[in-house]
Structures are given as C-alpha cells and as structure tokens.
C-alpha cells in the first residue's frame, strides 16, 4: 500500500532474561531511504536488526516489515530482504561462486536464473577474477563485498547491513560505500547500523541514535548536529593531566565546554572568534584546532564517553 512505511516499529521490546536489550523503541523506515541505527556497543542496534531480519522473535510491541508480521510471515519476509550480518558468515568450504550459488538455492531460486545473476553480482563486487577461489584466503574487504553480493542474490527490496565496514581499511570502506550508493540509486532501501560517524553522515538520509536500548534522538545527520551541537568545535590540547587547570579560565567563552584529560573542547558557532578570545587569556596550549562539528560530537553528547563493553 502506498504511504505505508517499509518497516514500522512501535513500542518494540527485546528482552534476554533480565536484560532489556531493546526497551520500547519507535521508528519508521520509508521505501527508498537509507536509514541508520547509531549507538555504542550494547545499545540494542543488532538486536533491533535481528528482529527486523526475522531471526529473533520480539518480546513485545508492534513490528511490521514489508507490511508483514515477522512472527507470522518470517520466511516470506526473509525471502524478500537481504542481510549483511555483523560478522561474515560466508561458507569457507566453498568457492566464491559456490557461495553465491548455494545461498541462492536457499531462496529456492532456479539454477537457470542464478547463473547470470551470479556473474552480474561478481562484477558488482569486483570479484569476477576470484570466482573460483576458495573464500578463506580472500582479504577482509573482498569477503565483505562478497557478503554484500550474497545478500543481493534474491534481488531484495530491503537490505539490512549490521556494521558493514567495521574492521576494513579506508580503501575497502570507500569501495563498499560506492556499492551501497549504487544500490540506493537503484531504489533499494538500506537499513544499517554503524558506530562510524563519517559512515552515517555519508550514507544515511535519516538515523536514530540508540543508547541503552532506547532511542536518544532521531533526524537527519545535519539536523542532529544543528539540534544537539554547535557549528564548530575548538580543541585546545595541553600536556597530559593539565587541561583541567585551564578549564576555568576559558569556560565563559564558548556555549559549552568539555574537559578531557589532555584537551578542552569548546563548542561554539564561531570558531575563529573563540580562538582569538582564548588567545587573549594568555594560555599556552600545545596546539589549537578549529573543526566542523560532526555527528561524532552529537553521538558522544547523547551517549556519553564511558566505555561500554
């Protein structure tokens, strides 16, 4: 039905024993958009993705995927979506080409249909030359591309990517982003989780920031920066443990100040003016850096700096 979101969650809960991994979240993903779940480890991103992928039954709340109920129509939904899991689950005992073939057979796709599609996906993943090689010796980037190619074997309307570029080198990440743009321009709806802020800014039209199982904020990357952060950040670097001494001297200058052991972060809309003001106070920072605020600042503001394991 037109107008109905492709994925729709309301009051969605996932409980493991006494732990609420996902604690009543609301979200909607429209057809054709790229939607991100952002959050630190343990925020509930992967649990949410697994519920959408129909491999994890929800504890309570509403969830509809492609207009269907995962509890009732799991197999039908899975037949129409593609999944790129957090860890590659490639079949190491098979070749690159066989991986695509076997996976396609799991979808009950006929051989005749699979043959041309496999060649097309190998080209898409830039793996045509490695088609008959075993998967094991491939590089991390190649394996990731193959996993994405595999997730496209059933020509899905919706692609779920759980931390698609974690652990890849910069070249491999950019190559992957390029493939994802292409899919998006072809009309595939992308839903991804990430904790790389540049990735979220690059890829997502809209995203939610998750923290401890709940949605902390929702919006476009630029909108979130506007709402939760200033335009620019001035970083004053001092020797280890020295920054705290200087904090009081400049605290009145920016809109907000954050004190880290070796740095002061001054959140401001006018970076250069702030730097001038700081210089008048006769501090001697080791270095001064003015930069644009990023989603990372929003993220840290919303989810805090504590390490979550």
């Amino acid at each position: 039905m037109p107008g109905e979101p492709l994925i729709y969650g309301r009051g969605l809960v996932k409980q493991f024993g006494t732990v609420r991994a996902v604690d009543s979240i609301d979200f909607a993903v429209e057809r054709g958009e790229a939607f991100g779940f952002l959050g630190p480890n343990g925020a509930g991103k992967s649990s949410t993705m697994r519920m959408i992928a129909c491999v994890s039954p929800r504890t309570s709340g509403d969830l509809s995927v492609l207009g269907l109920d995962p509890d009732r129509d799991g197999a039908r939904i899975r037949g129409r979506i593609g999944v790129v899991p957090q860890e590659d689950s490639l079949d190491l005992e098979l070749t690159v080409r066989e991986n695509l073939y076997v996976y396609g057979r799991y979808f009950d796709l006929p051989r005749s249909e699979l043959r041309p599609r496999i060649e097309q996906l190998l080209r898409f993943a830039q793996l045509t030359e490695r088609g008959d090689d075993r998967v094991e010796p491939l590089s991390g980037g190649m394996k990731r591309r193959l996993t994405i190619a595999r997730s496209l074997i059933n020509e899905p309307e919706l692609l779920l990517l759980d931390e698609p570029t974690t652990g890849l080198d910069p070249q491999a990440r950019h190559a992957l982003w390029d493939r994802l743009y292409r899919l998006k321009s072809q009309g595939v709806t992308l839903v991804l989780t990430t904790h790389y802020m540049d990735e979220a800014e690059q890829l997502c039209d809209r995203l939610v920031v998750m923290d401890r199982g709940t949605v902390a904020a929702e919006g476009s990357p630029q909108g979130l920066i506007g709402r939760y952060c200033t335009r620019e950040v001035v970083e004053l670097r001092f020797g280890p443990g020295e920054s705290e001494r200087h904090a009081d001297k400049v605290a009145d200058i920016p809109e907000r100040i954050e004190v880290l052991p070796d740095r002061l972060l001054l959140y401001t809309d006018q970076g250069d003016a702030t730097v001038e003001a700081v210089q008048r106070r006769a501090l001697a920072p080791v270095s001064v850096l003015v930069r644009r605020a990023t989603l990372e600042d929003v993220f840290l503001r919303l989810t805090g700096r504590q390490l979550v394991d």
């Binding site: 992928a53 491999v55 197999a75 799991y106 979808f107």
Partner: peptide
C-alpha cells in the same frame, strides 16, 4: 565455528 546456519536462517529456510 563456521556459522553456516546463521547464514542459512537469514534466508527463507527455518
């Protein structure tokens, strides 16, 4: 180890 079934269960197979 091989996580074969994780991949299988992401498809219509149960």
């Amino acid at each position: 180890y091989a996580k074969i079934y994780d991949a299988v269960l992401a498809t219509p197979m149960g």
